[in-house]
């Protein structure tokens, strides 16, 4: 009897202490969330997050170790070109550590780049299947990265990777999505100027967004550090495409430091255009520059 009385008293004391500590814990939790040290509780109505909760239960606080070991195992799958296994492994890894950008980034890279290219070159499959697999893995990589962004909104590295994936000509691009991702990356305030310029490049390739792109390009051009060759050339092209464009001579003066520079940069821009940047009017400009030079 005495034993049971002790146990009951013990629980009563624990509950009493619990009423003291619970609001305290809640306050600390809010503080930590405010300082970004604790992630917001996930939206638990979705199926995915329930899966994450259950793996959290299974491993307690040791998720990071397990994820690290799975990551090493996944690397072996990569070396063996076992893409099905690799995809499965990355699903587990991100379920364990949904807030480590590295895993989302690596997983998507494996799918969209390694698995896609490797499948396209896999001689065991007939050509149409190879092409289909290529496309499937690229889409998987994109979807994976998009989930990563959803789990870690505001992570500029993931957003930048997403912008690149959507904006790469060989990866079935969607320039609108690419521009949006780069824009978000830039707006986090942590990204490099590269993200801002990439946003401009993607915007310039969107249908019917010429004006928007031009405004962005002009704004970026103001800063010296943004005056890289590609940006200068692209801004020049967009300016030339304007309905009531200014005369070519004025535009060259605006966008480039000298005629010689302009000629050199535009020639490179035209020949190295794997990313399908707009080149309307570039030929005309080159001809004009050559004629001016010859004079």
């Amino acid at each position: 009897m005495k034993f049971y009385r002790k146990i009951i008293t013990l629980f009563a004391l624990l509950l009493l202490a619990g009423t003291v500590k619970k609001p305290w814990e809640a306050a600390i939790g809010a503080d930590l969330r405010h300082d970004k040290l604790l992630s917001e509780p996930l939206n638990l109505t979705t199926r995915e997050s329930i899966g994450q909760t259950s793996s959290a239960v299974a491993l307690g606080g040791l998720r990071s170790v397990v994820a690290s070991f799975w990551n090493i195992r996944a690397y072996t799958s990569f070396e063996e070109s076992n893409w099905v296994k690799l995809e499965d492994q990355y699903e587990t890894i991100v379920a364990l550590q949904p807030h480590t950008a590295y895993y989302w980034d690596t997983g998507s890279w494996h799918l969209a780049y390694n698995a896609a290219v490797s499948s396209r070159e896999n001689e065991n499959f007939p050509a149409p299947r190879r092409e289909a697999l290529h496309r499937t893995y690229i889409n998987k990589g994109k979807a994976f990265l998009e989930r990563g962004v959803k789990n870690m909104p505001g992570n500029w590295i993931l957003l930048s990777s997403l912008g690149r994936l959507h904006g790469t000509a060989s990866k079935y691009p969607d320039y609108e999505k690419s521009a949006a991702a780069y824009q978000q990356a830039w707006e986090t305030g942590k990204a490099r100027n590269f993200e801002a310029r990439a946003w401009f490049y993607s915007l310039a390739r969107c249908e019917g967004k010429d004006r928007e792109a031009l405004h962005l390009g002009r704004a970026l051009f103001i800063a010296d550090k943004n005056r890289v060759d590609t940006l200068c050339c692209l801004l020049f092209v967009l300016e030339m495409r304007q309905k009531n464009a200014r005369p070519i001579e004025e535009l060259v003066k605006l966008c480039f430091t000298s005629h010689a520079d302009a000629l050199r940069m535009l020639e490179v821009y035209k020949t190295n255009n794997a990313e399908n940047l707009p080149i309307t009017g570039v030929d005309h400009a080159i001809e004009w520059l050559k004629s001016v030079q010859n004079k």
Partner: peptide, 16 residues
């Protein structure tokens, strides 16, 4: 949640 400690607060380790 009254009886047991909330160890989730220690997930700050992951954030760091």
């Amino acid at each position: 949640s009254l009886i047991f400690p909330n160890f989730q607060l220690f997930n700050v380790i992951d954030a760091v």
